[in-house]
Design a protein around this nucleic acid. Structure first.
Length: 785
RNA sequence: GGAUGGGUGGUCCAGCUUGGUUAAGAUACCUGUCUCACACACAGGUGAUCGAGAGUUCAAAUCUCUCCCCAUCCA
C-alpha cells in the first residue's frame, strides 16, 4: 500500500498522461516474450495503418484505441498477448502524395529518386501516426514495429510469390484493364473516380441485313471497328422484333448480331447500344458475359491498332473525327446530341482512362472459393452481422486476381525474362529482389541457357503484401519456434470497408501457404463518420484531425468517448463536443477516488458487513458480470456504459451518501470498517474493470492508492454471485431517496424562505421493506422520525 | 441499377434475436442548490403517437408485408 496515498487535486489532469507513458516505457509493462512462457498466446493481427497524408483519420485513431482495449483486456485474462504494430507503406496513395508534395510526375522522374522521395514522405507521415498511437496509450510492441516496405517484409511477399509460381498458381494473361495514358499505367478500379464531362452522343443509322435500319447511339463512334454486338432491352417494344437479327457495320462492312440485354437502357440515346472492345467497363462485362471475341482496338500509345484499317495508327480523337466525317458523307449520321457523360478519369492525372487489353500476372483464386466458404463459416465474427459482407463477396468473386501493377512504390515481382527465349526465370526464395535494377542471382536461362536477361519492372498489388501480415508477424519461414507458438493467430481486427480486400485476401493467401485460416476470430469495426453521418474524406473536407483533440482532452477522455459512442461494428459519429463531455466522467471518478483516498485504505473485506454494504457489493458483482460479457465479445460499449452507470448513478449518488456517516465516524468500529473496506472494494474493482478502456487515470489512482505496481499487471475481477439477492432493494432504495429529496425540495424552510437543503432535517419514516438500511438512510437524509 | 446497415425525446444512442409493467441512458434545455469528494457537481423537471401505412396478436419499438428517407459498398 502506498504511504502517501491521498489525492490532492480536484480534477483529473490529462497532462499526467505523459508522465505515465514514460513510466510504462521504463518498466516495460507491456513487453512480450516467448521465453519461459507457458501460457496461452493471444495474437492480434493488428492492421498496419497507411500513412497516406495529413491529417490522420480520427475514426482510425478510435479504431486503434479499441484494439488496444482488446489487448489490455486479454492481458488481464492471463493470456500471453502479442500485439504487434506495423505501418503499411506500399502502394499508390504515397505516390500521389509524393507527386503533389514535390510537384513531380512519377513517370518523368528517375525511379530510384522517386522511391527515395516516397520514403521521405512516408517517414514524416509515419512518425506522426506512431506518435498519436503512443500518445493514445496503445500498448503494442512499438520497439520493433514493422514496415511493409522493409526488406524483410518484401522478401516474404516475394518468397510466397515464388512458392505460388512453382505450384502453378500464377499465370500471365491478357485481360482488359483500366489504363491511363498520362501515367502510362494500368489502374485498379479503386484508383478511378468519375466526372461529368460534356461529350457528343452520335446517332448512327445502320442497315439491318434481314431488312430495314436501326438507329444506334454512341459516344465512341471511333470504336465502330471493334463492335461485336448491338444490344437492346428485351422490354423495349421498339426493338423486340429485331432481336436475333443482324446489323451491317458501315465502312467496315461486317455483320454483328442484335442481342437482348438488361443493361440496355431504353431511355438513353436510341435504346440500342453498340458493344465494342472496349468503350467502358460495361463493355468488358458484356464481352465476358456474352462470350464475344475481343477486337484489340487501341495500343498502349493511345492510338488505334492496325485493325482499324483506314483509321489505323491515329490518336483516338483523330480517329473519331475522321470516322464521323466519313459516316456523314455516307448519310449515316442521323443527328448529334450534346450530353454530360459520366466519364471514368484517373485519380492522379484527372484525364479520362481507356480500357486496354494488357498482359498481367494473375493469382488463381477461383478454385479456392468453395474451400474458403467452408472455412469462413468457422470464423467467429464480432459482430456476427458483418459475416455476410464476406459471404456475399465470396459469392461474387468471378475472376482470378490480377496482381501486377505498372508502378514504382511496391514490392517488385521477382522475375527475370530470358532475352532469347523469353522464358521467365525466378530466383530462390528468401531474399529481396529488385529485377529492374539488379542482375539476376543466376547465370543461365533455365530453358535455353542464355546469359542475357531483362528484369521485370512491374510491382505487386499492395494487397499481395498486406494480405500476409498474419504470416509476417508470426515469423513464418523465419523462426519456426515462434511461428508454431503464434500461428494461427487469434484475432483480425479491422474496418468493415476492407472486408472484400484485406480480410478476404488474407484468408486466401494464408490458406494457400499454410492450409489453414490465419485467425479464428474477426472483429469488425464501423467507421467514424462526421456529425451529419457522412463518411469523412479529404475531398469533402470533413476530416477531423485526432492530434489536437487528443491533446486537448487527453487520451483517456478520447478512449472513453470511443467506447461509449456506439455499439460494436456500427458506424459512429465523431464530434469534438461529445469527446469533451466524456471528460466529465473521468473527473467524477477522480473525485470519487479523492474522497476514498482521504481515509484509511482497507483492501480486504472484514467478516462483518452492514446490509447497505452487502447491497452495493451485490450490485458490484452484477457489474463485474456485465463487463465480463462485454469484454468477451470485444464490445466496449457495454462495460463503459455499465461502469459509468454504476459508478455515477448508484455508487456515488446513493451508496456513498448512505454510508458517509459511517465512513467519518469511527466510534462504531464494525460499521466504520465495513463501510471503508466496501468503498475501497468498489473503487478498486471499478478501476480494474475500467483499466482497459481508460489506462491512464486508472493507473494513476491505482498506483497512488493500492499498489506500487501497475494496474495493467493485475487480473480482471472474476464475477461471483455474492449478495445478488440484495439487488432487489436497489429500486426501492433509489425511489425512497428520490422521494425524500423531492419532499425537501418542495418544503420551504421558515428560516431562509428557500427550499430545504439536503442536510436539513425532515420527518419521514423509512418503509418496512427497507428496514435493514434504516440506520444509513436516516443518517443520509437526517430523518428524525 | 444491385447489396448491406440505419431511421426511437432538440441532439447522440440502448432496447428488436426470444412481442408483455411507466421506452433506458447520455447530452442539451428549464428550475432550484456551494448539502464536510466533485458547480467538470447535486436535486427536481420539460421533452418520443419508436420513418409511413397495412397485417398477425388479448398485447407490437420488437414479428410479417408494402412504401419513403439517410448512409455505405458494389456496378
Amino acid at each position: 500500500m502506498n504511504e502517501n496515498h491521498k489525492i490532492e487535486s480536484t480534477s483529473w489532469d490529462p497532462s499526467l498522461e505523459l508522465k505515465i507513458l514514460d513510466k510504462w516505457r521504463e518498466d516495460n509493462v507491456y513487453g512480450f516474450s516467448i521465453i519461459g512462457q507457458n501460457s496461452i498466446p493471444f495474437v492480434i493481427d493488428t492492421p498496419p495503418p497507411y500513412p497516406s497524408g495529413r491529417p490522420w483519420h480520427i475514426g482510425a485513431a478510435a479504431h486503434y484505441a479499441q484494439i488496444d482495449m482488446i489487448a489490455r483486456a486479454a492481458r488481464m485474462k492471463d493470456y500471453c498477448v502479442f500485439f504487434p504494430i506495423g505501418i503499411d507503406r506500399n502502394g499508390l496513395p504515397v505516390e500521389i502524395y509524393t507527386e503533389k508534395k514535390y510537384k513531380i510526375q512519377m513517370r518523368k522522374t528517375d525511379r530510384e529518386k522517386f522511391l527515395d522521395l516516397c520514403k521521405q514522405a512516408l517517414d514524416d507521415l509515419e512518425s506522426e501516426m506512431i506518435q498519436i498511437m503512443k500518445d493514445m496509450g496503445i500498448s503494442g510492441n512499438f520497439d520493433e514495429y514493422y514496415r511493409t516496405d522493409s526488406t524483410e517484409f518484401r522478401s516474404l511477399t516475394q518468397s510466397t510469390f515464388i512458392n505460388l509460381w512453382r505450384r502453378d498458381l500464377i499465370y500471365i494473361a491478357n485481360r482488359p484493364n483500366n489504363y491511363c495514358y498520362d501515367c502510362g499505367t494500368t489502374l485498379a478500379d479503386a484508383e478511378i473516380t468519375y466526372q461529368e464531362i460534356p461529350t457528343k452522343l452520335i446517332y448512327m443509322k445502320f442497315n439491318i441485313k434481314e431488312t430495314g435500319t436501326i438507329i444506334v447511339a454512341s459516344t465512341r463512334p471511333e470504336l465502330l471497328f471493334a463492335c461485336q454486338a448491338i444490344i437492346v432491352n428485351s422490354e423495349d417494344n421498339r426493338y423486340t422484333e429485331l432481336i436475333g437479327k443482324h446489323v451491317i457495320l458501315p465502312i467496315f462492312d461486317r455483320e454483328v448480331e442484335i442481342l437482348a440485354h438488361r443493361t440496355a437502357n431504353p431511355d438513353f440515346g436510341s435504346g440500342a447500344v453498340m458493344v465494342c472492345s472496349y468503350g467502358d467497363q460495361n463493355d468488358v462485362q458484356l464481352f465476358r458475359e456474352l462470350g464475344l471475341e475481343e477486337i484489340v482496338s487501341l495500343t498502349e500509345l493511345g492510338t488505334t491498332t492496325e485493325l482499324a484499317k483506314p483509321y489505323a495508327n491515329l490518336r483516338i480523337s483523330q480517329a473519331r473525327s475522321r470516322i464521323i466525317e466519313d459516316l456523314k458523307k455516307d448519310q449515316r449520321i442521323e443527328r448529334e446530341e450534346n450530353i454530360m457523360h459520366r466519364t471514368p478519369i484517373c485519380e492522379r492525372s484527372r484525364t479520362p482512362i481507356e480500357i486496354l487489353s494488357m498482359q498481367d500476372y494473375y493469382l488463381k483464386q477461383m478454385s479456392y472459393i468453395p474451400k474458403l466458404k467452408k472455412l469462413a463459416s468457422k470464423i467467429k465474427f464480432h459482430p456476427e452481422i458483418h459475416r455476410q459482407i464476406l459471404n456475399s463477396w465470396l459469392d461474387s468473386v468471378s475472376i482470378d486476381w490480377p496482381i501486377s501493377r505498372r508502378r514504382f512504390y511496391g514490392t517488385e515481382i521477382p522475375i527475370w525474362f530470358c532475352n532469347i527465349c523469353k522464358t521467365p526465370n525466378l530466383p530462390e526464395a528468401g531474399q529481396y529482389y529488385r529485377p529492374w535494377k539488379e542482375k539476376p542471382p543466376f547465370e543461365n536461362c533455365s530453358k535455353c541457357g542464355s546469359k542475357e536477361f531483362t528484369g521485370e519492372d512491374r510491382i505487386f498489388d499492395t494487397w499481395m503484401d498486406s494480405s500476409i501480415t498474419p504470416l509476417f508477424i508470426t515469423r513464418y519461414l523465419r523462426d519456426q519456434k515462434l511461428y508454431d507458438y503464434l500461428y494461427p493467430t487469434n484475432l483480425r481486427p479491422q474496418a468493415k470497408d476492407i472486408i472484400r480486400t484485406w480480410l478476404y485476401y488474407s484468408m486466401l493467401r494464408c490458406f494457400q501457404q499454410t492450409d489453414q485460416l490465419p485467425w479464428s476470430e474477426a472483429w469488425i469495426m464501423g467507421y467514424g463518420v462526421d456529425e451529419k453521418g457522412e463518411k469523412m474524406s479529404k475531398s469533402k473536407g470533413n476530416v477531423i484531425d485526432p492530434f489536437p483533440i487528443i491533446h486537448r482532452y487527453g487520451a483517456d477522455a478520447f478512449r472513453f468517448w470511443s467506447a461509449t459512442e456506439g455499439n460494436l461494428g456500427q458506424d459512429f459519429r465523431c464530434s469534438e463536443q461529445r469527446i469533451a463531455i466524456s471528460k466529465n466522467f473521468l473527473s467524477k471518478l477522480w473525485n470519487l477516488a479523492r474522497f476514498v483516498s482521504s481515509f484509511k485504505i482497507i483492501y480486504d473485506l472484514p467478516r462483518h458487513l452492514d446490509d447497505s454494504d452487502k447491497w452495493i457489493l451485490g450490485e458490484l458483482s452484477k457489474l463485474v458480470k456485465e463487463c465480463e460479457l462485454g469484454y468477451n465479445d470485444y464490445n466496449f460499449f457495454i462495460p463503459a456504459n455499465a461502469i459509468r452507470d454504476f459508478t455515477w448513478n448508484l455508487f456515488a449518488s446513493h451508496y456513498l451518501e448512505m454510508v458517509k456517516w459511517r465512513v467519518y465516524e469511527n466510534e462504531h468500529k464494525y460499521g466504520h470498517e465495513s463501510a471503508i473496506s466496501t468503498i475501497n472494494k468498489c473503487l478498486s474493482t471499478i478501476l480494474l474493470l475500467l483499466s482497459p478502456i481508460c489506462p491512464f487515470i486508472t493507473e494513476e489512482i491505482w498506483t497512488k492508492m493500492y499498489s506500487d505496481k501497475s494496474i495493467h499487471l493485475q487480473k480482471m475481477p472474476k464475477s461471483g454471485t455474492e449478495y445478488q439477492d440484495l439487488t432487489k432493494y436497489t429500486k426501492p432504495i433509489l425511489e425512497f431517496n428520490s422521494m425524500v429529496w423531492t419532499k425537501k425540495k418542495g418544503t420551504i424552510s421558515p428560516e431562509t424562505g428557500k427550499p430545504l437543503s439536503l442536510k436539513d432535517p425532515i420527518q419521514i419514516a423509512v418503509p418496512t421493506t427497507l428496514i435493514s438500511f434504516a440506520p444509513d438512510l436516516r443518517k443520509m437524509h437526517n430523518l428524525n422520525s
